[in-house]
């Protein structure tokens, strides 16, 4: 299969004093450090992949490793068929990026930032940038530091989409955006991949966005890949079973990936939809799980022992 991105056995560790990440309680940390453990997944050309996971799971670390902003301890990253370090220049000129925190040169106007960015790309399309700036209502004469986070994100997106990138890597691009623009962005990303061979890797907490557009979902937790599969397969296989305490019978427990108990009853997540329907179809409610359900149940404290 022709892949836009292939990651094989990628690992990265930070010591407890590492200043790059502050793992959340539900992160890959052990003893306060952080470990990305032999992460492997691939994104075929022409598709959108959503990268999801709780805070500190390693999503931004993976994106920084792809961009060679941090050094990998082991494994392999191939972007557009090239090693991300050996082919760094070529890859970066064919790749668009949006960081979770849009750091630019704060005291410059957007027009000046464009002037600094454009020469780096051999395929920079100024007409496209101006069209997007108009569409996103970007005030090109304003200083970057005076913009809201949402506007800064829009500018970063406009820049990422203006140089005929073959792969877009977006780290939390929808955070800080209003719902109207979020929908607009999703529409743009769908349109982007209509152009044959273009792909998107999209990390986000807003899983509903991914349910709308992602073809593949990669779920990372604690520095490990929980699954990386086509969205439809995930949404078809994962269900939430809602019922009484009898669900917690010993023979049922191995079926569940996560359990939540409350006064109202027991909610349990499983990746075996058919088996759950067969076992509990009459005595419990079996509902298709959303990506948010999966993230919630799989987070620490909700998983069964």
């Amino acid at each position: 299969m022709d892949c836009a991105l292939e990651i094989k056995d990628l690992s990265k560790s930070y010591s407890p004093s590492g200043r790059l990440t502050r793992p959340a309680p539900d992160s890959a940390g052990s003893g306060g450090g952080f470990h990305l453990n032999e992460v492997s997944f691939s994104l075929p050309r022409g598709y959108i992949m959503g990268l999801i996971g709780p805070n500190g799971a390693g999503k931004t670390t993976i994106i920084k490793l792809i961009l060679n902003l941090i050094r990998r301890d082991g494994g392999e990253i191939r972007v557009l068929g090239l090693d991300n370090i050996a082919g760094e220049m070529e890859i970066k000129s064919r790749l668009g990026f949006v960081h979770d925190t849009p750091f630019f040169y704060e005291h410059l106007t957007l027009a000046d930032v464009r002037k600094t960015v454009a020469p780096f790309y051999r395929d920079w399309d100024d007409a496209c940038f101006r069209r997007l700036a108009e569409e996103f209502e970007l005030p090109l004469g304003k200083r970057f530091k005076t913009l809201s986070r949402g506007m800064k994100m829009k500018f970063a997106l406009a820049a990422a989409l203006s140089h005929k990138a073959e792969l877009l890597i977006l780290d939390e691009p929808t955070s800080g955006l209003d719902p109207v623009f979020r929908r607009e962005l999703l529409r743009k990303l769908s349109a982007f991949i209509q152009d044959e061979g273009k792909s998107v890797l999209f990390s986000t907490h807003i899983t509903s966005d991914l349910e709308r557009i992602a073809d593949f979902i990669t779920f990372i937790r604690g520095g490990r890949i929980v699954f990386s599969s086509p969205r439809d397969r995930i949404l078809g296989a994962w269900v939430v079973v809602k019922g009484g305490p009898e669900l917690l019978a010993a023979e049922n427990r191995p079926l569940f990936k996560g359990i939540r108990q409350s006064a109202c009853g027991v909610h349990a997540l499983t990746a075996e939809a058919d088996e759950a329907r067969r076992r509990f179809g009459r005595e419990a409610i079996v509902e298709t799980a959303t990506l948010e359900d999966i993230m919630f149940f799989m987070s620490k404290g909700n998983g069964h022992a």
Binding site: L67, N68, L69, M89, E90, K92, S93, F97, H99, F103, F104, Y105, E106, H107, V117, F120, Y121
Partner: peptide, 11 residues
Amino acid sequence: FKAETFTLSLP
């Protein structure tokens, strides 16, 4: 400005 992250993401 912490702009090195941005610059080093460019080609």
